[in-house]
Amino acid sequence: MRATSESPDPAVPAIAAAGIRKDYGDRAALRGVDLSIGWGEIAVLFGANGAGKTTLLRILAGLTRADDGTVHLAGRPMHRRGGRARRLVGFAGHQTLLYNDLTCRENLEFYAKLYGISGAKDRIEQVLAQMNLSDRANRRVRTLSHGMQKRLSMARAILHQPVVLLLDEPESGLDAESVATLGDLLRDWAGSGRTALLTTHSADVGLAWADRTLTLSNGRIEADAVAGSPITAGAAAPQ
């Protein structure tokens, strides 16, 4: 089992963003975000509601176009035709990106085909087991609880074995047990040299997982600290 589709160059940062700007009409969401996250790091992004956390994650994932600035994942540019960078990134956001009338397995089969995954069958069973969904594999998404849908969404995000994981409030809607599972997954993730950047509403969860905390405020990264250092508690006053 390969850990990643291509082994990343450790000298190049996993996520590198420079001068990211994004306006929504009269409101500036991001005013020049510079970011560099290394391999094996779990970075947690804090910030008030509307601080631009979701926008930043969507820009890093190549879903939203920045007005200005560049994004590189493992040294590969992420832009409209950045197929190679897209392969490296897994994304799970507020929406599950699942089709309600397909079963769990069918949803994953669809995404496996889109990503051109070889040995998809085994891989699908593997991620279903990882997310404790094996017994629900043939159930339609519509019939699953919100928490299960959220887990399936995680399974979808890691299906193609990305090296960079972007998660927007992954713990919301999950029960305590699932949050713990997710924490284990993230620890394994970082342990194998892969990178995750996530946002969260829960300071406890965020601080428990983080190797590094970033605070987004006024459209910029205003605080950047290694977890456990004194600044963290003060800077990361999350909502």
């Binding site: 009269d26 409101r27 500036a28």
Partner: peptide, 11 residues
């Protein structure tokens, strides 16, 4: 004007 509003609007 829109740009000035953006600069003025600090969240």
């Amino acid at each position: 004007l829109s740009q000035l509003r953006r600069e003025g609007n600090t969240n």
